[in-house]
Simulated scan of single mutants.
Amino acid sequence: MVEEGSRVLVVLPHILPNTTLQRIIEQTVPFLRKWQSQLDVVVIPEFKTSFQLDSALGKMYSVIRDVLLRYEMINSGVNVIFNNRHFAKSSLQWKVGLLPQGSTFDTWQLELENGQCHKMEHYALHEDTVERIVGPRDASEFRVTALGGTFDHIHDGHKILLSIAAFITSQRLICGITCDELLQNKKYKELIESYETRCSHVSRFIELLKPNLSVELVPLKDVCGPTGKVPEIECLVVSRETVAGAETVNKTRAERGMDRLVIHVVNVLGGREEDGWSEKLSSTEIRHLLQTSHPMN
């Protein structure tokens, strides 16, 4: 189990090329392994469009996870933080902070020198390639947004989904979390986290991203959940392989005299649509890996 106080911080000046990001993450491996740490990766530039954010998060989580898996560190938690200027002033404590060389980041050093970060190190940038992706500006576009899922052993795919939902929401995010009763037929069900644990992980992650956002966690007992009952919801965030369920939600809302929801689709992390997303990152695969590495009696 990762200690909450054992965290490693990486600050990025912009979205870096894959090889550069890989090199930087490799520098964190000794610290992550020594302390069984969480890794917080903070991206400085502010995102304006969810299209750009979705692309950037997919790339960063994939590169970071590939590095960690190479070192067989399947339990290391990763959080990519964005659009949160006050993150450095949070109550979090980091064992070590990794910052780019250069006077641009003196402010971050000053903010972190108050004991919040026990050790400071730097990395060099040998190129300055900035990824530019255009798209409609939709930050905080919807007052009330909803999404749903099991969120067992919260993983990078979950975090991208939650990140996009928080990004496009200005006031209230309603998150349906599948109740324990509906998970009895899941593979490796003995390793499924409790409803309370799953709620806690979702809540803590959104707090890292957007601490002022009102978050409501509700038990999900059917396909629609709160989207079939709460008229104020404006948008439903889904991953690409669950779009059909979103259409069911809109059909139900129409039958009940409520406005249809805007369906915001987030890319799947891993896998391809042609093969049914068979290689996507999933909680089932994580439970399988946990069972393999720590067989239960």
Rank of each mutant, 00 (worst) to 15 (best):
E3A: 08
E3W: 03
E3P: 02
G5D: 12
S6G: 01
L9Y: 14
V11G: 03
L12C: 15
L12S: 11
H14R: 15
L16V: 05
L16E: 12
Q22V: 00
R23M: 09
Q27V: 01
V29K: 04
L32H: 02
K34M: 08
W35R: 01
S37P: 01
D40W: 04
T49Y: 06
D54F: 04
D54C: 07
D54L: 04
K59H: 10
Y61R: 00
L68A: 00
I74L: 08
V80L: 03
A88C: 08
S91W: 09
S91M: 03
W94A: 03
W94M: 04
V96S: 05
W108Q: 06
L110C: 07
L110W: 02
L110S: 14
E111I: 08
E113S: 15
N114R: 14
N114G: 15
K119M: 14
K119L: 15
E121M: 12
Y123D: 13
Y123G: 11
L125R: 05
H126I: 11
H126M: 06
T129A: 02
T129N: 06
T129W: 07
V130S: 04
V134P: 01
P136V: 13
P136M: 07
A139N: 04
E141V: 10
F142V: 02
G148V: 08
G149Q: 08
T150M: 11
H155M: 05
H155C: 04
D156N: 15
G157E: 09
L162F: 05
S163V: 06
I164R: 08
I164M: 07
A165F: 10
F167C: 09
T169W: 08
L173E: 05
C179W: 11
E181H: 10
E181Y: 05
L182W: 11
E193Q: 15
S194F: 06
R198S: 04
F205L: 00
I206A: 04
P211C: 09
V215Y: 13
E216I: 03
L220Q: 13
V223P: 02
C224V: 12
C224P: 00
G225C: 10
G225Y: 09
P226A: 07
T227F: 01
T227Q: 03
V230T: 15
V230H: 02
E232I: 01
I233T: 02
C235G: 04
V237I: 12
V238A: 05
S239C: 14
S239M: 11
T242L: 08
G245N: 10
G245E: 10
A246C: 13
T248F: 06
N250K: 05
N250M: 02
T252V: 14
R253L: 03
R256H: 15
M258E: 03
M258K: 14
D259T: 06
R260F: 00
V262W: 00
I263F: 06
I263C: 12
H264F: 12
V265D: 05
G271P: 10
R272C: 09
D275E: 10
D275T: 13
W277F: 15
K280F: 14
K280T: 12
K280V: 13
L281T: 11
E285S: 08
H288Y: 12
L289C: 05
L290S: 02
S293V: 02
P295V: 09
N297W: 03
N297D: 07
N297P: 14
N297K: 10
